[in-house]
Structures are given as C-alpha cells and as structure tokens.
Write a protein that binds this DNA or RNA. Structure first.
Lengths: 233, 233
DNA sequence: TATAAAATACCCTGAAGAGGGTATTATTTG
DNA sequence: CAAATAATACCCTCTTCAGGGTATTTTATA
C-alpha cells in the first residue's frame, strides 16, 4: 500500500520507463466537462515530456475551435458531456481530421456508449476513469504507435450489451407498438390512447395484446420496466 | 479562450496570489474511487507548496488506515464511492478525528447526498467537479482558516431537495404502506401481496386505497413513479 | 390509562384490463 | 405482382382494480 502515500506518479515514474519507447512529441487534446479533471490531467501529464497538451475544453464546441487552430495527434475525451456529447465530438473530429486518434476516458463504460463510440466513431481506445495515470500513458503511447487500447472491462460490457441488443432485436416491435408503449408509460388508459391516436379502443387493445405477447409481460408496470431495460423508452 | 491552451493553472497561478494568504502547511488526504482523478489532483496540487498530500485512497478503508498513521488537516473526498461511500467515510473520520475538516468533491451535488454529508457528517465544504483548481484551492484555504465553502449551485440543490422532502414528509406513509408499495413496484397483484404478507386481500385493498389517496395517484404506474421521485423506493 | 395512529378486515359497484378469438385494409418488400 | 408485415377493428369472458363505505384489533404515545 506504499502507493497511497506521497506523489504516486513520482515513485512510479522512477520505477518504470515510459519515456524510453518513443521520444516523438505526442500532441494531445483533452475534453472533459469537469474542469478539475482537465486541470488534474494536465498537471499529471506535464511530468511526461513526450506528451504536450495542445488544447483542452469543457465542451465540444470550444475544443473543436481549438484544434482547428492547433493540430493534435490524439484526442482524449470524456463521453458523457453536456451539449455536445463524446460521440458527436468524436464523429466530428474523425470527419474533419481523419488522422487524429481518439481515446475515450469515461466514468461509466455502459455498453450503449461504448458501442456508439466504437461503432459510429471508430475510436482507438476506451479507458475508465478508475485507471491510473500509468495506464493512461500506456494507452496514449500504444494508440500513438498505431495500435489500440481497450480495457477488458470495457470490452466485457460491450459484449454483454451487444448480446442483450441481439435478444431485443429478435423481438420486433412495430413503430405503432412503440408509440403505444410510450403512451402507456405516461399512464394513459386504452381509451385515452385511442383518443390520442384517433383510432378505436379495440385497436389499442389489439396492439396492447400483441405487445404483451411479444415482450413476455402481462402488466403495464412490468412492460414499462422491460421497455426501460431494452432502451425502448 | 486563452485559458484553453497550455497549462492552465500555470498562467492562472501567476496572475493570482493564493499562496499569500497563509504559509502554514495544509496536510491533505484525498479519497476518490477514480485513480486518474487522484493522480490528477496530486499533480495539480503539487504546484501549491503550502499544501501537501499526506494520504490518498480509492476506497474508504484504505484511506482510514492511512490517516491513522499520518495526521491530516483536511480530507477531500468524493461522495459516490463503492464499498464505503463518502457519507460513511466522513462520519467515521469526524468521529475519530473531530479536528479534521472535510470537503466533498462530487460529480452530482444531488440534494440527497448533500443533505447527508452536511446533516449527518457536518462537513465544511462541498464542491462539484465542474470547478477548477483555483476554486478548489480557495475552498481548501477557506476551510483550513476555520471557514466553510459551499458552492451556490450545491446550496440551491440542497434547498430544493429539502423543500421536496418537506412536502413528502407531510404525506405520512406508514411502514406497512411502504412495504406494500415496494411489492406493487415488483408487479405483484393484490392477491400475491396478500399471500406474501399473510394478510387478507381486503386488507391489501384498504392499504392500496389509502396509499393512492395519500399520494394523489390512481394507478400502479403513477404511484411507482411518485415513489421513485420521493425516494421511497 | 386514555387517545391517537396503524393495521387489520369486509361489502359493494362499475370501469378497465388481460387473454382468447377472427378479420379487413394498407403498406412494404422480395 | 405476390407474399409478408403492419395497422386497423370487433366480439366475448373473467378477473382485477379503483373508489366509495364501515369497523375491529393492535400498537404507540401523550
């Protein structure tokens, strides 16, 4: 537990040798909606002379502006951010600057987000904030060298999520059915739904029946829970 | 937007004068379940010579162990942490070392947590991670000087929460009623609830009726939503 | 101990829902 | 164009539930 005392990265930097791998300067941009995280990362990365921070920003727009003026090699970005989320930012950066590598640094590692970041934006790395600075450096170096770095826990979450998604996609709810589910979620009765959609109560009853059958539920409550779990709502 | 470039705290430290206030050494402990945040904070705080980091930990137990060996003045702790949460940690620290001041550094600032930290553990400060390093330093100095530091947004959230709580406390649900709500939330029918609690269906119906009346709801779904909002579930 | 609050139980009514059908009319897709 | 899918609509039955009562016993609490 010697790590817990003093300046952790000092001791660890002395006992490791990150800086031997490549001495080319890596120009980094950091996006995180928490200023304290940016400040902290900057301070921590200052100790590694082969990494320079070219831009930081607490929101996507500011960061996009910055990197349009100053080129970067790698973007290190949070995923859940207000206004412009990590996914949109990554997409935009990949579109404008295809040569820029992107590493996500997120709290959650929720399957949905990971899938979006990897599937839509084709990022090169995904780290959880639980990781230490050493692992971050490792990831940056690996990605900069043309590789990838994905934490195993992240990949596990992703595969779990994809599996759940596959199960859900087997259950094919129609657009109308989803519409009706969302009205049921709001607490509407069959009559109210019928009035809202300008259709007969009988039709709503049929849809309702089909929905329950497809989802394997039999009350509004369990259905709504199912819908939340499967991201219908 | 000049802040976005380079090492932000460098420029700002030059243009401010944090270190003029008190030159007594402040011994700080940091608890955060994200190692990267700890690493970052340590690196950032290293630039302030009147603050020394005596202990860090990604969970409460490790940190308690550390500070039992090395005295501290201020504990800077995250609130939502696995195993031992910020509230428990703060309580324990305040109990064992009443002279230690505590500042919470949290993501959420959700009213419930703020209330617990302030009400139960009587902490001296509460910051959101959106804040920058300057504000953190300010808070540390203020608290160390015997004062308090609570961000206005945090206080706003708290008062909103206390107001909601007051409204809820006017609605007095009995223990049995809460029990029945939680069974309703699980999707149980009146019959199932009656069997589960070894009481008559009639009794369940009565409770149900009283619950709906008290909460102003009239379906299971709206009731369950109400219960979530008011933290009954 | 007196009183209030909580938990128990029953009755009745009408509306709504769950579950079982069948069937016609778009609309999409191979 | 033919076949499949989606959306529409109706019928019937039986159960459950919401909402309106009243009333007894147990448990706190003043």
């Amino acid at each position: 537990m010697e790590q817990l005392y003093g300046y952790r990265w000092n001791t660890s930097r002395n006992s490791h040798s990150y800086m031997n791998h490549s001495q080319t300067l890596i120009r980094l941009a950091i996006a995180d909606d928490h200023q304290i995280v940016i400040d902290g990362l900057c301070a921590a990365l200052k100790n590694f002379s082969h990494i320079s921070i070219s831009a930081t920003g607490t929101d996507g727009n500011a960061l996009l502006q910055s990197i349009s003026e100053k080129p970067i090699d790698i973007l290190l970005t949070d995923v859940m951010m207000p206004h412009i989320g990590g996914v949109e930012l990554a997409l935009e950066v990949k579109k404008k600057y295809p040569e820029v590598k992107i590493i996500a640094l997120s709290m959650s590692g929720s399957g949905t987000l990971v899938e979006e970041m990897m599937g839509k934006a084709a990022i090169e790395g995904y780290l959880l904030k639980h990781c230490g600075i050493e692992e971050l450096i490792l990831a940056i170096e690996k990605v900069h060298a043309g590789g990838q770095y994905f934490q195993t826990t992240v990949l596990d979450e992703l595969s779990k999520h994809l599996q759940l998604k596959k199960q859900t996609s087997d259950i094919r709810l129609t657009q109308r059915e989803k519409e009706i589910i969302s009205l049921m979620e709001k607490g509407c009765s069959n009559k109210e739904i019928a009035e809202g959609l300008f259709i007969s109560v009988r039709t709503v009853e049929t849809h309702r029946k089909n929905i329950f059958r497809k989802t394997g539920t039999n009350t509004v409550l369990t259905l709504v829970k199912w819908a939340y779990e499967h991201k219908i709502l």
